[in-house]
Design a protein around this nucleic acid. Structure first.
Lengths: 227, 227
DNA sequence: GTCTATAAACAGATAGAC
DNA sequence: GTCTATCTGTTTATAGAC
């Protein structure tokens, strides 16, 4: 009886482990090479699991794709949510303070998105899913894009003194985000043009410095104009 | 004799036509859905040609991919090259004039990249090829990215009075480009967040206005700082 | 040059032993 | 839950008729 239960727990524990290994392998490979370019056999090999297990745990390749999207959303909710006030209960800030929080947040984004290799693969998964409007775009939009963008708009509004949900603010925030993510999308072009061997934390900091400067300039400009 | 030659020319003419039809179909489908997600059968169907013709004209699917990259480079060289002075023989401009040329150029880029549906597919092909560092990334980098980025750095340098090839300038120009291309990559998120049915010329103009504002602010900031 | 038929490899899904 | 073997469909590439 007791032994049986222990066995069951062990099996469940290692089952969870297999599930997670498959999920991480899929996230990595889907992100790096794309969904269609990745075979279930590759995923199983990368996760050191067998091919059948993906059908067992996720129902199939498509199920794995959906699980990846959900996992990313859950991670964002758990990590970034409370850390940067993604839930809407963030305190109101004075202009200069809001600008600082905005710049600090974007610089953290740069470090995370651009220089962390594994993070980059997750980001690429998201951007790829977005660019083909694949399944999972709904959950990713509602769980990642919308809350992050809303929060940035809030900060932008407090920093510039403008309506945080105005068309102009929403566009400006998209442009700001674009400055950051392009360094991931265009990574290959960046390393060639910058003549860097890779983009590590040191290089990311150099990018962050310029982007911070840009954001402060943009905020200042939007603060002046009355619309 | 004469008849034979005419036949040959006709065959060659229609051969060129099939070749081009295949090329355009591939560019469209690769751009929209990705290389691996696109089958040669789809391409042949879209081009109203048969499957064998792609092997005949391009040697295979990979050859078609390479031909797409080369075609884009040739197009850029032919169109954008002389129009915006991509060849390095552009005149030196006074600060304010350079800023205007820069802003005008970027706004044209916005209209082209974001609102033209067929152009968008080409852009997506390029960005996708770049993001996986696939074959053709060499020819695309040398033929598109490098000349465009160099030219923008030139203009940026003239507008800000800074070294056009300094690290800071190169990064700033990447950031500027990122503002633009993100509206293509993140198109799906943009239309949802902006609550636009699509991004047509009217919406592109609204984006362009904000981006132009941003660029002017960035240029002004970089002009002030001495480094 | 075009088109069809087919080969050879590979995909994802599944059944069933353990 | 894991793992193997296998089924079924699809892929690209190719050979050869026209």
């Amino acid at each position: 009886m007791v032994q049986e239960e222990q066995e069951r727990r062990e099996r469940q524990g290692s089952a969870e482990a297999t599930r997670l290994a498959l999920l991480m392998a899929a996230l990595r490979l889907f992100g790096r090479n794309g969904y269609e370019a990745t075979s279930t056999r590759e995923i199983a090999a990368e996760a050191k699991a067998n091919i059948g297990s993906i059908a067992y745990h996720f129902g199939g390749k498509e199920g794995l794709r959906a699980a990846c999207a959900e996992h990313i959303v859950a991670t964002i909710k758990a990590i970034a949510g409370p850390a940067v006030g993604l839930d809407g209960d963030a305190p109101s800030l004075e202009q200069k303070a809001a600008e600082d929080v905005l710049v600090q947040g974007v610089m953290r984004m740069i470090g995370f998105i651009v220089s962390q290799p594994q993070a980059g693969e997750f980001v690429q998964f998201v951007l790829r899913e977005l660019s083909v409007a694949g399944p999972g775009v709904d959950v990713l939009y509602d769980g990642v894009f919308l809350p992050v963008h809303r929060r940035l708009c809030q900060l932008w509004g407090q920093a510039t003194g403008q309506d945080p949900e105005s068309e102009r603010t929403r566009i400006a925030v998209f442009a700001m985000v674009g400055q950051v993510v392009y360094f991931r999308i265009g990574r290959e072009a960046v390393v060639r043009r910058m003549d860097w061997p890779t983009i590590g934390p040191a290089e990311a900091a150099r990018l962050g410095a310029v982007i911070a400067e840009n954001i402060r300039a943009m905020v200042a400009a939007h603060r002046e104009t009355q619309r």
